[in-house]
Amino acid sequence: MAGKIGIMQEGEDSTQERVEKLMRDPALRREWLRQKNMMCVGLIGIGTIMVQPFLSDLSTSATPPGKVCLISFAVAIPLLAALIMVNWQEIFRGRETRSRTVLVAWPVAQAASFVGVVAGFWHIWWVAGVVMLLFGLIAVGVHSAGYTRLELDGESGGPE
């Protein structure tokens, strides 16, 4: 209990030491590779669905949000496809690439996908775009908090 309220007991790891241990965990690293692949496939699917109306009826893509949606996914979809191929090789080799190009491509592809989704919602109704933007950012915080808490709370495997 004392460790939970900020007082380290004898033999307890600091948060930094626990993070470093987690970063070396091979099972966790394999899981990250699988999750990255799932995320790319999901974003490509969302992008493909969202751009279809803009490609089939060019009058809808004439609005500024429509153009932003199209351009965003024009950036994201090819990058995500390339990242899937790199990810399969990473899974095969059991390690992540250290390529700076790939490290830059990840956030660019994710950001372009997010901008595309927000612009698509904005195209329908600006309030929907604002709501998507707000709750997209909240969702990042929810995921980060939940993931961090789950991984750093220990290895008991059960509820507290």
Results as ranks from 00 to 15, higher is better:
149 R>K: 13
6 G>W: 01
45 G>K: 03
77 I>Y: 00
136 G>A: 02
1 M>P: 03
85 M>G: 09
27 A>H: 08
124 I>D: 04
61 S>F: 08
155 E>K: 11
101 T>M: 08
49 I>Y: 14
127 V>F: 02
21 K>R: 15
143 H>V: 11
130 V>M: 07
29 R>I: 11
90 E>Y: 15
156 S>G: 15
135 F>C: 01
92 F>W: 07
44 I>H: 06
103 L>A: 14
7 I>D: 12
127 V>P: 05
2 A>W: 00
112 A>R: 04
96 E>K: 08
53 P>T: 11
80 L>A: 02
50 M>R: 05
27 A>C: 07
42 G>N: 13
8 M>W: 14
144 S>L: 14
102 V>K: 10
152 L>H: 03
64 P>V: 12
84 I>G: 06
82 A>Q: 13
58 L>G: 06
108 V>A: 07
76 A>Y: 06
48 T>K: 03
142 V>Q: 00
29 R>V: 04
129 G>F: 05
2 A>G: 10
157 G>K: 04
56 S>Y: 11
117 V>I: 14
100 R>W: 13
147 Y>D: 15
12 E>I: 05
9 Q>A: 15
29 R>D: 10
117 V>Q: 12
16 Q>M: 03
103 L>M: 12
86 V>L: 12
55 L>C: 10
7 I>L: 06
135 F>N: 04
34 R>H: 10
111 A>Y: 04
47 G>R: 01
108 V>L: 10
95 R>S: 08
5 I>M: 09
108 V>M: 10
41 V>H: 09
115 V>T: 12
114 F>W: 06
32 W>G: 10
105 A>Q: 07
37 N>L: 09
52 Q>N: 13
82 A>G: 15
106 W>H: 06
26 P>A: 05
19 V>L: 15
74 A>D: 01
9 Q>S: 13
10 E>V: 07
73 F>M: 02
28 L>I: 01
119 A>W: 01
98 R>Q: 09
59 S>F: 03
45 G>H: 08
89 Q>K: 13
98 R>W: 12
84 I>T: 09
131 V>D: 02
13 D>M: 12
118 V>L: 05
20 E>Q: 14
98 R>P: 12
116 G>T: 02
139 A>Q: 05
104 V>L: 10
87 N>D: 10
71 I>W: 07
113 S>M: 09
64 P>H: 06
115 V>F: 09
4 K>G: 12
63 T>G: 10
107 P>L: 08
8 M>F: 07
136 G>Y: 01
123 H>V: 00
124 I>M: 05
3 G>E: 13
123 H>T: 00
1 M>F: 04
119 A>G: 07
79 L>K: 03
98 R>V: 07
142 V>L: 00
149 R>I: 09
160 E>V: 10
121 F>S: 02
85 M>A: 09
131 V>P: 00
123 H>N: 10
92 F>N: 14
11 G>P: 09
15 T>S: 08
37 N>Y: 06
77 I>G: 03
110 Q>H: 08
102 V>E: 08
74 A>M: 01
159 P>S: 15
151 E>N: 14
143 H>S: 04
129 G>N: 00
12 E>G: 05
131 V>W: 03
76 A>L: 11
132 M>N: 09
154 G>Y: 06
48 T>C: 12
101 T>V: 15
